[in-house]
């Protein structure tokens, strides 16, 4: 038996941890892009802010986009509820709230992550320290995941946490793709240009997939394969298909455990159908942007339906 509030707390705790990690990756990719210096780096930071879903909020605080401001805003600005510092605070508050549902290891790794990151992010991060801070974020959130996987029972607690993780992750991957979808369209003039190559690597880097891409496709970068990898590839842990396989599985466990099925189960299945046994070319022909927008909207509606079904509020 579990409180609805606890399910909600777990869901959000893991969404926030996932978000912290994703934001660190986005910043990492942004820094790489700005180092290559092939185009206006401010444009690049604008698209990073867009991918993180914080551009509008940023522009309320700043007149124009610069790398250092964007990084600071995404790392530690308290006015940004999605900054790493904000989400780590929120994740830890949620973890405290659901303390009784966590193993000691899972709680302590979250608490230590918070202790470390709040101290490292107490002041603006110097350029030279940025790589180590980004590493620390990935490391600390990785440790939480490790402690969680290593010690938690595979029960409803696990299911709600996983659902939170994958709803967030799917949202994140879809946003990254949506901001840069035009780069993945087969526009004849640019194909194979070095500029495109840099952009494509950047997309892959922002989901930590620049190495694994090569293992899977054994070919040069090409936009169709990249889209296929991030949307449909069931083995790529940040792809939309993978995330939704996991969500559907975890919802399935809940259905069995509680012997009850909700709207959310149908919605999840519907979304999964749009990702299963599909050809990426068909998706691109049908309009990639439209597809991604639909996905983001449905993914978020699924989150709300889960909240209703399991009495989060």
């Amino acid at each position: 038996m579990m409180l609805g509030r606890t399910a909600n707390g777990l869901f959000w705790m893991f969404r926030y941890i996932e978000r912290a990690e994703n934001t660190a990756r986005l910043i990492d990719a942004g820094v790489r892009m700005s180092l290559t210096g092939t185009q206006g780096s401010d444009d690049e930071w604008t698209s990073v802010l867009k991918s993180a879903g914080v551009e509008a909020n940023f522009l309320q605080q700043y007149e124009n986009v610069t790398g250092p401001d964007a990084i600071d805003f995404m790392l530690r600005d308290e006015r940004n509820p999605s900054s790493v510092l904000s989400v780590i605070n929120s994740a830890r508050s949620n973890a405290r709230m659901v303390r009784t549902a966590l193993t000691r290891e899972a709680w302590e790794s979250t608490n230590e992550c918070w202790i470390d990151l709040t101290s490292r992010l107490a002041r603006r991060v110097k350029d030279a320290d940025l790589p180590s801070v980004l590493d620390l974020i990935k490391q600390r959130t990785g440790l939480i995941r490790g402690a969680f996987h290593g010690t938690m029972l595979r029960n409803e607690i696990f299911n709600f946490s996983r659902i939170g993780t994958f709803i967030e992750r799917a949202d994140n991957t879809a946003r990254i793709l949506d901001v840069k979808y035009y780069l993945l369209l087969p526009a004849v003039t640019y194909v194979g240009s070095s500029l495109d190559n840099v952009q494509w690597v950047s997309i892959l880097r922002s989901v930590s997939a620049h190495r694994s891409y090569g293992w899977v496709y054994e070919s040069d970068l090409n936009p169709t394969n990249i889209a296929d990898f991030l949307i449909l590839n069931g083995r790529m842990p940040r792809s939309l298909a993978y995330c939704h396989e996991k969500i559907t599985n975890n919802l399935g466990y809940l259905e069995t455990e509680y012997s009850s099925r909700h709207n959310a189960h149908d919605t999840a299945l519907e979304i999964l159908e749009t990702l299963r046994n599909r050809d990426i070319r068909a998706i691109i022909d049908g309009g990639l942007h439209q597809f991604l927008e639909d996905f983001i909207r449905r993914n978020s509606r699924l989150g709300q339906e889960i909240a209703e079904a399991y009495r989060f509020y």
Binding site: M1, M2, L3, G4, R5, E156, F160, Y258, S260, Y310
Partner: peptide
């Protein structure tokens, strides 16, 4: 045992009950 907060609880069926994922 469960750790509950006020908003988790409600009077139902003549008793105080907590809102769980299953009602």
């Amino acid at each position: 045992v469960e750790l509950v907060e006020g908003p988790d609880l409600r009077v139902i069926g003549g008793r105080v009950a907590m809102r769980t994922t299953q009602g």
